Computed example of a mutant assay.
Amino acid sequence: MSSPCDPQYAPAGDVGTALMVIDSRLKAIYDGRTEADPEQKRLTDQFTASMGAKEFHDVVDGTCTLIFMFMKWLRMAYEDHDKDVIEYVVPSLVATMRMMPKSVRPEAIPTMAGLLVAAGTGLSPSLWRKQYGDWTTGEMNPLEATAFLLAEHINRLTDDRDFATRLISKALSSSDED
């Protein structure tokens, strides 16, 4: 029986822009910067200001697609070692989010954990979240942080700082060819 949260029913959104944001954050952290580059922040703010509601929602959906794709890759990687992705990924990401009170308010953590579990069980994070109402402003930073933490987790597992970005880029390139 098909679920209404099946990824086939979910909009992919603007995965390219979502990936660009996550990749930019990863590069900043890897370069040892804890604060955003002022020029990068100005460009991001300018880009965000130019977006309408539809474009904004597309980036949110794109971020959910990233979370789904990252969790799918992690699920396959952990299953190759007879491990459960939810058992090995969700608790560490939740613990990390709890250490980020400026970016991830405590009340958003259960929603982000739910998104991870939904994606880890093969459900669309955006459709899973939609059943509980619209996204809130307070969930935007935690959503970005969740995608970032997943990408960083993948990069650490593979010992390759660009692996998560390449993983998605290759998937986007192959979908363009189809």
Score class of each variant (00 low, 15 high):
M1S: 07
P4L: 05
P4K: 09
P7M: 08
Q8H: 11
A10L: 12
L19Q: 00
M20I: 02
M20F: 11
I22N: 01
D23I: 00
R25Q: 13
R25V: 13
K27S: 12
I29A: 05
D31P: 03
G32H: 10
R33L: 10
R33P: 07
A36F: 01
A36E: 04
E39W: 00
Q40F: 12
R42P: 02
L43P: 01
Q46P: 00
T48W: 13
T48S: 14
A49F: 05
A49Q: 14
A49T: 13
G52Y: 02
K54L: 06
E55N: 14
F56P: 00
F56A: 00
H57Q: 15
D58K: 10
V59E: 03
V59Y: 01
V60I: 15
V60G: 02
D61K: 07
G62E: 00
T65A: 06
L66K: 00
L66E: 00
I67N: 12
F68M: 03
F68A: 04
F70H: 07
W73H: 15
L74C: 05
R75P: 03
M76C: 07
E79C: 00
D80A: 14
D80G: 15
D82C: 01
D84H: 12
V89P: 11
V90W: 04
P91Y: 05
S92T: 15
L93V: 11
A95M: 10
T96N: 10
P101I: 09
K102M: 06
K102Y: 09
K102S: 03
V104Y: 03
P106D: 15
P106L: 03
P106E: 09
A108H: 10
I109W: 08
I109K: 12
I109Q: 13
T111H: 12
T111I: 08
M112T: 01
G114I: 05
G114P: 01
L115I: 11
L116D: 08
V117S: 03
A119P: 05
T121I: 10
L123A: 14
S124Y: 07
S124W: 03
L127R: 12
L127G: 06
W128G: 02
W128I: 06
W128F: 14
R129P: 09
R129H: 14
K130V: 08
Q131V: 05
G133R: 02
G133E: 07
D134R: 11
D134H: 13
W135K: 04
W135I: 07
G138C: 09
P142T: 12
E144A: 15
A145L: 10
A147F: 05
A147V: 06
A147N: 01
F148E: 10
F148K: 11
L150F: 06
A151R: 04
E152F: 12
H153P: 06
I154S: 04
L157S: 09
T158W: 13
D159E: 15
R161L: 12
R161G: 15
D162L: 12
F163V: 06
L167V: 02
L167P: 00
S169C: 10
A171H: 14
A171Y: 14
S173C: 11
S174Y: 06
S174T: 13
D176A: 14
E177P: 03
